[in-house]
Simulated assay, not measured.
Amino acid sequence: MKKRLRIIAAVVALTLPLSVPAASIDAQLERYATAARSAGSGFEGFVAARGEDFHTRRFSGGRPDTPSCAACHRDDPRQPGQTRTGKSIEPVALSVSPGRYADPEKIEKWFKRNCQEVLGRECSAQEKGDWLSYMRSR
């Protein structure tokens, strides 16, 4: 019986850290959904396929050397990326980097910086939610 309890405790301990990021993303997505509804844009939910399109689409409003998210984060977000200066970037897909989205302040910090560089503007709540939905699906 004790051995069985130790095994159960070990399994719970191993899976608990993996569930925290998913809960963090869920909370972040709910914040973006609230903001999108408030924007009066006819929000009907986030769509991972739109997030994938957003990730790979080339924009002209930002820096010429970062025309898309994929310019630094790769077309396949499960692969490591690279900054313009050559610094390695951990994969952005939740399946490969489960702790990446645990801190809402960091999520906002990087959206603010990267959206300015790629789009030349802040991302909308809809764009952020679609993109995070895509990262969760990968």
Rank of each mutant, 00 (worst) to 15 (best):
A125E: 01
M135D: 00
M1N: 13
S60N: 10
C123S: 12
H55C: 06
V96R: 06
C72D: 02
A13W: 09
Y101N: 09
L94R: 10
C72L: 07
I8L: 15
I8D: 07
R78S: 14
L29F: 08
M1H: 11
E122G: 13
S38M: 09
K128H: 03
A71D: 00
V47I: 12
W131F: 10
T66R: 15
V20E: 07
E105P: 02
L5K: 15
F59S: 10
R138F: 13
D26P: 00
F46R: 00
R136S: 11
K106D: 08
S97A: 13
D103V: 07
Y32S: 02
G51E: 00
G51F: 02
D75N: 14
L29H: 01
R37I: 10
K128R: 15
R4Q: 13
Q116M: 11
R6L: 15
S19L: 13
S133Y: 02
E44V: 12
Q82L: 11
G45L: 02
K2V: 15
W131E: 01
F43M: 01
P64D: 12
C72W: 01
P80F: 04
T83K: 07
P80M: 06
V20W: 09
E90Y: 13
R50V: 00
L14C: 15
Y32L: 08
F111Y: 14
G61L: 08
P17C: 11
L132K: 04
N114V: 11
A71K: 01
K128D: 03
D53E: 15
W110S: 09
R63G: 05
G86S: 10
H73G: 07
P91T: 05
F59H: 11
A10T: 15
C123Y: 00
H55I: 04
I107G: 03
R4A: 14
D76C: 09
